[in-house]
Design a protein around this nucleic acid. Structure first.
Lengths: 212, 212
DNA sequence: ATTTACATGTGAATAAATTGACACTCTTTT
DNA sequence: AAAAGAGTGTCAATTTATTCACATGTAAAT
């Protein structure tokens, strides 16, 4: 199989969709699936699917297809979902609270340990059982709690400062909801969620559709 | 210039980033910018930027570059941000409320008129001045309020049913936060926000980074 | 057992996206 | 008014991604 040099980001961004459908198939008790059938589900071509999986070594069997459970497990491992992550959120506004409240992330192995904010009105409140703490206390919290992921749900003006705090405290993964580009060292990963941009894309296609 | 057949989705997905930086430049009072300078800001290559803009007709001037205000206005028009949209949200949980609460969308021309839910405990509540209404009343609301965009922030189990409601009421743009693929007619645009998938990508790179 | 159908993995062909290079035009300087 | 500098628009080259096609191995059927 060989872990080779580098799988392209184009391929990586398709993996979660495979994983989602495989989870569904597994839940339905379906034990085998062909690239052709996966193609119908995902909308990617069968050939593309086979090529994608081959980046990580062939998981399939000629004349049979893929074993759902095996493939699911492999994708889970590839995506790093076979370990637990601890996360904290800075920015305890609605979005931060919404994320803290969403059970789905915890089910996937991402545990939000605490929210942080500077607003005294929210400090001390709890979302589920997750406490909102004073941002001033974040350094020691991260050190004491083995936090691997930092989530940013502040306004864009504060986002870089929060990123700096995360970096300083040796956090290697940042999930950024603020509409700005963060500057971080090479060994830190930033994944952005661009709600604005997504909405603009929708707007573009709405407009384009109208013109037809 | 010629509006040609079809600009590739790859190009389209870069436009919001250009638009974001141009908005910043405009706010700073900067009046001209070259593709080279934009390249430094956005991380795309200068050549790519020129190619991208040329899909919509050249907005630049040789020896000068691009006029920030003009380019900003063009992108605004291309993205369909020069018109106002009315939106409704189905699913008045934390995420729905967070979106309703976010002033940024309104500033960009997207006005959330109402939230809808089936849970009697939240019906009647207000987020800012946006009322949460009974989902049973959505048909007439959409008809009476010229709604163009439907937002889905329900659990995945209800998402397709909500999409059906939107389609039935002649909504042509759906912004979907539920982790499922919606089936809609060809003339309806769906833009998905995949929070789970985004988090999984972060997890992938965290894992990959560790292994180095 | 043998045959038939199936479906992967892979190498080659095609298509799409990115990068490179430069002629040409406009701006600015002298 | 002329010369120098800057930077677009575009065509060509390269790289990357997708699709095609099939040899080969496996499973199921007879």
């Amino acid at each position: 199989m060989a872990k080779d040099n580098q799988v392209s980001i184009t391929v990586i961004r398709r993996l979660p969709k495979y994983y989602r459908y495989l989870t569904e198939l597994k839940e339905k008790g379906i034990s085998r699936i062909s690239s052709q059938e996966l193609s119908v589900l995902t909308g990617f071509t069968a050939s593309q699917i086979r090529q994608d999986f081959n980046n990580f070594g062939g998981f399939g069997q000629q004349g049979y297809g893929y074993n759902v459970e095996d493939l699911h497990r492999e994708l889970k491992r590839i995506l790093g979902l076979d370990t637990e992550y601890n996360a904290v959120i800075v920015g305890a506004g609605n979005l931060g609270q919404a994320i803290a409240n969403y059970k789905g992330f915890e089910d996937a192995g991402f545990k939000v340990l605490s929210l942080f904010d500077r607003n005294p009105k929210v400090i001390g409140l709890k979302i589920r059982d997750i406490e909102i703490r004073d941002i001033e206390t974040i350094d020691s919290f991260i050190k004491e709690n083995n936090v691997q992921i930092g989530i940013i749900t502040t306004p864009k003006e504060s986002a870089q400062a929060v990123a700096n705090i995360y970096v300083k405290n040796n956090i290697k993964g940042i999930w950024n909801f603020a509409p700005t580009d963060l500057v971080v060292p090479d060994n830190v990963v930033v994944e952005n969620v661009r709600l604005n941009e997504s909405l603009f894309i929708l707007s573009y296609f709405l407009r384009t559709m109208e013109e037809k």
